[in-house]
Computed example of a mutant assay.
Amino acid sequence: MSINLQKGQRISLTKDNPGLKKTMVGLGWDPVKQKSKGLLGGLFGGSQAQVDCDASVFMLDENDKIKSKENIIYFGNLKSKCGSVQHMGDNLTGSGDGDDEQIMVDLSGIPQNIAKLVFVVNIYAAAERKQHFGMIENAFIRLVNVTDNKEMLRFNLTEEYSGKTGLYVAEIYRNNGEWKFIAVGEGDASAGLNEMSKKYQ
């Protein structure tokens, strides 16, 4: 049975799921329906803004630092050098039900020098397009056990993120030989992924 987490809540992944190795991290969101203006707007209803959100992963060492660009997994670098983290590709609009982007994580293959995975989402070209997360709704992150394809946990981001162009969504981290998950849900007004990564450099 899937567990619904609240912001700041932590949960042990491997203690409660012995033998857990391969997981799928799914992230999803929907564009907010815009109210159309003018005469025709009343006839044809609202439209959805095309907001291109990108999910990425920062692979951090024990000092919460990114050692190299290879440890940033995103649409331009889909697979970590060790092969333990693989991004399944970019979704340009966020339309449709279910996960918009998926990231495969093999916990058993993560190198010992990596202590934490930080999952972030940012809006591509947010400044140029004058877009922010107030234009997004129903955002979530969920974790699925690949072995039995069952959802283990879900965190719905229900806060108001208007004016924010990046989100630190969640973390998977080592703790006393176990892997744990924390629901973060913090907004960032930085311009893009590069600026967000500077927090860990």
Rank of each mutant, 00 (worst) to 15 (best):
E70F: 02
N71I: 09
I72S: 03
I72W: 02
Y74I: 03
F75T: 10
F75L: 12
G76Y: 07
G76E: 11
G76I: 05
G76K: 06
G76S: 08
N77L: 05
N77I: 03
N77V: 00
N77A: 08
L78F: 08
K79Q: 12
K79H: 03
S80Q: 09
S80N: 10
K81P: 00
K81N: 08
C82M: 07
C82Y: 11
C82R: 02
C82W: 07
G83W: 04
G83F: 05
S84P: 01
V85L: 10
V85E: 07
V85N: 06
Q86M: 10
H87A: 00
H87P: 00
H87N: 06
M88D: 13
M88Y: 06
M88I: 06
G89S: 12
G89K: 12
G89P: 13
G89W: 13
D90C: 11
D90Y: 03
D90G: 12
N91Q: 00
N91A: 07
N91I: 00
T93P: 00
T93G: 02
T93S: 11
G94I: 01
G94L: 04
S95L: 10
S95A: 08
S95E: 13
G96K: 03
G96V: 07
D97Q: 15
D97I: 15
G98Y: 15
D99R: 10
D99W: 14
D100S: 11
D100A: 12
D100M: 06
E101Q: 14
E101I: 14
E101Y: 09
E101F: 11
Q102E: 15
Q102F: 04
I103M: 08
I103K: 04
M104L: 15
M104I: 15
V105M: 09
V105P: 07
L107D: 10
L107W: 14
L107P: 08
S108W: 04
G109M: 05
G109D: 08
I110H: 09
I110C: 11
P111D: 14
Q112R: 04
Q112V: 05
Q112I: 03
Q112P: 01
N113Q: 09
A115C: 08
K116A: 05
F119P: 07
V120W: 00
V120C: 13
V120F: 01
V121K: 10
V121G: 10
V121F: 12
N122S: 13
I123R: 02
I123H: 01
I123M: 04
I123E: 01
I123A: 08
Y124E: 02
Y124N: 00
Y124C: 01
Y124D: 06
Y124I: 01
A125Y: 04
A126V: 04
A126Y: 01
A126K: 04
A127Q: 06
A127P: 02
E128G: 01
E128K: 06
R129K: 13
K130Q: 13
K130V: 13
K130H: 12
K130L: 13
Q131Y: 02
Q131V: 11
F133T: 06
G134I: 06
G134C: 10
G134E: 07
I136H: 01
N138Q: 14
N138G: 07
F140E: 06
F140H: 07
I141K: 04
I141T: 08
I141M: 09
R142S: 14
R142G: 13
L143H: 02
L143S: 01
V144E: 14
V144F: 12
V144D: 14
N145G: 08
N145K: 14
V146M: 10
T147M: 13
T147H: 12
D148P: 11
D148L: 09
N149V: 12
N149K: 12
N149M: 12
N149A: 12
